[in-house]
Design a protein around this nucleic acid. Structure first.
Lengths: 337, 337
DNA sequence: TTGTATGCGTTATCAA
DNA sequence: TTGATAACGCATACAA
């Protein structure tokens, strides 16, 4: 780490001069181009090393139209699900010399548009986004812009884009199935906002499981629109105070399940005896509670990694046909069921 | 949102030509420079608007040596404390047209060095960092590099840098004082790694409070080195299984306190009757548990915001003397004490 | 295999 | 008040 405060930054020109070659030869040496003799290349590399040359990414980006930066847009950074997603992305991109510019939308449409404008303004090479799905417009805008992007966790049925999502329908099914097999008959679902594809699909899976096992659904046991711990707490409290209360709750996410757990504790219900709870996403939260949460999914980190890798492929191959991945959900048994 | 796929991006030259002025006049108009007639300026602005001109940040950055990007380096993005910190930063920077490049260190020294190299390579205008403090080197390197930066949450006693931290000593004091006033005599502390300034200072505050109120400390009730929920769980379990177990635990963070809570539930201890718990940081976690956590601090979001604003000031004023802020800690009473 | 020269889109320095 | 022109550091078409 040569920390040269005063010295001007070493440029390619410096390296070239010192190595006694043209600036262009130096460039080729450093970029692993083929048309160059091994000796020259070695010499240039050595000099570059000696001088502590660091390419100016700005200049390179300006010239090559590639910033090596990826725009990442998620709902809420403080939500553990997104935090883990981001970690996975960062992890996957690190080794490929890509950086991440982060934007949060707070699940707000205007903020989503704004976030997209920002990352486009930064001329990122690609975008990873969890769309709010409050409108299809921002994503359409992304398509029109021509920039490669991958949707994460959510997708649009009527839009031909690349995405990496969970198999949410299946996830909803196995979560519900599990509760049924544990003997539960009154299974509530505290679901996310219905315009979000994952919420809609998990709900479908829930219904299918009930039907498959011959249980009749009870619409009054289903609440949509919950995203936060507070939502989960509030709704669970209401459901659990009913006369014929549910004996099991399938929550949209671990985050929401945390609120359910809180409500259960508040009402002094024993978990899982008085109430069984299944979360979703398999975030670290699910092992942080007492009892630990039974949950469905596969680590958000993995989803983030896959989305990042997919985007990189899209960037390199220029393949124009969208790639769509559904990660199978699995049940992670812990103490809450 | 004019989404022009095919069309070449509008440049300053286009605007200039269309407005019938020189490229340079156009530049002045768009950058609010003074030496320009109001009419010309108005015309240029209008044309720019009509054409949907977006300045190329890369070119601008290359020329002006200002990327309008801030490097943010934190321990662990998935830790709610850091997640909230990041949110605060993002929030504060958004309105000033700065973007954020994010790097996580996992509290690892090599990764910290690497992260710094990355943000420097991206030529960020400034850095916000929560140093691992496993070594002073990375921060020294930052100093040598000449780039403006602000330490967050942690500082080095023997280093003259700008920082924004909590008043951790005071925080440790009031947390402990609160427990003492609740009648507790055997107060354990599950502390963070001692090389981290906040851990060291909270411990000092803890000791001072004990002394101030005439309680004698018991070294066996103090454990350093805990950062995660799992750490908190493991250590709390051990402490609580002792014959003479503590009746209160002061945890290094809400995150650690979550583990303590888990252990308490596991042992079927009633909170706060059998065991009182105080967390630290006032993260959203503290309202997500049952019972909600009494905690100390002031929202990490605020700290992030202040650090970001301070950095912006440093960037604009070029003031060379470090600015150091200590945010007073306050006790947030909730259900766990 | 190597070097020369040009341009990426800005901002800044000078003259006009 | 304006305009021509030179950078910024790099990559690349083309010539040698």
């Amino acid at each position: 780490m040569p920390g040269n405060v005063n010295l001007r930054r070493i440029t390619l020109r410096d390296v070239a001069k010192e190595a006694g070659v043209s600036i262009n030869t130096a460039s080729r040496a450093l970029n692993n181009k083929s048309e160059i003799s091994p000796e020259t290349k070695a010499r240039v590399l050595e000099v570059a090393q000696k001088l502590g040359y660091r390419p100016n990414r700005l200049a390179r980006a300006l010239r090559s139209n590639k910033t090596k930066i990826i725009g990442v847009i998620v709902g809420d950074i403080a939500n553990p699900y997104f935090a883990m997603l981001i970690q996975g992305i960062e992890h996957a991109l690190r080794s490929f010399d890509y950086s991440v510019i982060l934007q949060g939308t707070d699940e707000d449409l205007d903020r989503e548009k704004q976030a997209i404008e920002v990352v486009l303004a930064e001329q990122v090479d690609g975008v990873l986004i969890t769309p709010t799905q409050k409108s299809i417009k921002p994503v359409k805008f992304l398509i029109d812009s021509g920039i490669p992007f991958v949707l994460m966790s959510r997708y649009f049925d009527d839009l031909e884009t690349s995405f990496v999502i969970m198999d949410d329908k299946q996830g909803g099914f196995i979560a519900t199935e599990h509760l049924i097999q544990k003997g539960h008959k009154r299974i509530a679902m505290i679901n996310g906002p219905f315009h979000i594809s994952s919420a809609a699909e998990r709900y479908t899976g829930y219904l299918q499981a009930l039907q498959y096992y011959g249980l009749e659904g009870d619409e009054s046991l289903v609440v949509h629109g919950c995203l936060t711990v507070k939502d989960g707490y509030r709704v669970a409290l209401r459901l659990l105070k009913r006369r014929r209360r549910p004996t099991a709750i399938f929550a949209f996410s671990d985050f929401v399940a945390l609120g359910v757990l809180q409500a259960a504790h508040k009402l002094a219900l024993k978990i899982p005896d008085d109430l069984a709870i299944v979360g979703f996403d398999d975030t670290f939260l699910s092992v942080c509670t007492y009892p630990p949460l039974t949950t469905v999914g596969s680590s958000p980190e993995q989803l983030g990694q896959r989305a990042a890798k997919l985007l990189l492929e899209l960037l390199s191959t220029k393949a124009d046909k969208p790639v769509q991945m559904r990660i199978p959900a699995r049940l992670v048994l812990r103490g809450s069921t």
